[in-house]
Design a protein around this nucleic acid. Structure first.
Lengths: 226, 226
DNA sequence: AGCCCTCTATGAAGGCTTTCACACATCAAT
DNA sequence: ATTGATGTGTGAAAGCCTTCATAGAGGGCT
């Protein structure tokens, strides 16, 4: 476990360039968390008292309403670190985090991390970079629904998913493991709408559809829709 | 000018609790920027080399497309500080900033600010808080379109505008100085849709409509729509 | 006053999405 | 092999929003 954590830490933006001794100290602070698929790590509104890193499995960051509607913001996979905002300001979590498959995470608690930050200024600087990255992504998510039509957004999202948010990939044919219903939630639209737009693309040879997965065959063509 | 800057700095989250000497140093670093209504401060994609604070006037943070469409994210008024993300990571601006009225701003350049940060760790901590606040707001802006109907979002937005984003206010009757067209851009919808929904509320006595302004008469009633 | 520009008001037509309903395919478990 | 759960494929009806077109009202300027 500890070696896994050290491996993840050294490759992540947040901790890269730090001395080995510091990384080991961070790893010592961390404790393992195991979740099975469907379990919730935290809810929107919980106290934000820790940061998490994904060692294996996938975590869905989403927000849901009492009536059952849910918006998925992003899914986190191996190597991703999340929960850093609540870690910094100690306020409430802004979204839910749920395991969508069996997960192995590491957790660093707020108090431990703050002590470390005081001793290691570079850690703060890196943390700032990480926190700055989020708004850059979110502001794009804000303007896309206003500027792009649904098929354009869908194409864009598929490309993004293939590049960043799936473990599996091969040279010229990228696979996305999401059901059409999940895609609908990712994009705040209905499963049926997703389905109707997806129908036209296999005919062009741009994608292949399967049960619970989509193979991208022509990224270029999809990109031109945007 | 310098006294104005010091006044703004001492009241803002970013600099509060800092020693007077430090605040004076920050003020010394800053230079004044004057804009007349309609002038652009920076465009999305520009290099982000400075942070700004509003001494007077209003700045619109928005993002626009070649075809003329525009989404307004937020408007900044007296006492607001913006541009801090590009300041931190030195990357490109994520939105346009334009003066919607004659403005007096102060500017602190990236290089100057970073020097200061190294000498003043508390400044970094406060900056982190500020940067953390943004995603909290934006993530709400992301889920609202998915969960709420247009009238609900409109009501919510009016309340927000009345509270935070207009200089003018009086006890039980809040005035919003936005045209219906601008409201449409704020909410990524058409001027006509805004108008149609607004029509029904004066009859209930919840708001008064004027040319280029809206008076909120019953905040409670609007809040219940959400 | 007269003129112009901006903003508000309103209706009709059309488009895109949602919702509902149902059929069918796939996979896992018994 | 049967059953049940989950995911995909489709069509019809309804709703909401957009776009287009047009009218009128309010303010500032000469």
């Amino acid at each position: 476990m500890s070696e896994d954590v050290i491996g993840l830490l050294t490759t992540h933006t947040l901790f890269r360039d730090l001395d080995c001794s510091v990384i080991e100290r961070v790893a010592d602070l961390s404790r393992g968390v195991q979740l099975s698929g469907g379990q919730t790590l935290f809810f929107k509104g919980d106290d934000g008292d820790a940061l998490y890193g994904v060692l294996s499995g996938h975590i869905r960051i989403s927000s849901s309403e009492p009536d059952g509607k849910e918006v998925i913001f992003i899914t986190m996979g191996q190597g991703d670190v999340f929960g850093e905002i609540a870690l910094l300001d100690g306020r409430l979590r802004t979204a839910d985090a749920m395991a969508i498959s069996d997960c192995s995470l590491f957790q660093i608690r707020r108090t431990d991390f703050r002590d470390l930050m005081e001793r290691e200024p570079r850690l703060t600087t890196h943390l700032l970079e990480l926190v700055c990255e989020r708004p850059r992504v979110t502001s794009e998510m804000l303007e896309d629904p206003a500027f792009l039509t649904l098929p354009a957004r869908l194409a864009k999202r598929l490309i993004r998913l293939a590049q960043y948010e799936t473990p599996y990939s091969s040279p010229d044919s990228l696979e996305i493991k999401f059901s059409q219903a999940e895609l609908g939630q990712l994009m705040s639209t209905s499963r049926e709408s997703i389905n109707k737009h997806l129908q036209s693309w296999p005919k062009e040879g741009w994608i292949d559809l399967g049960r619970g997965r989509i193979m991208i065959k022509d990224t270029q063509a999809l990109a031109e829709l945007v």
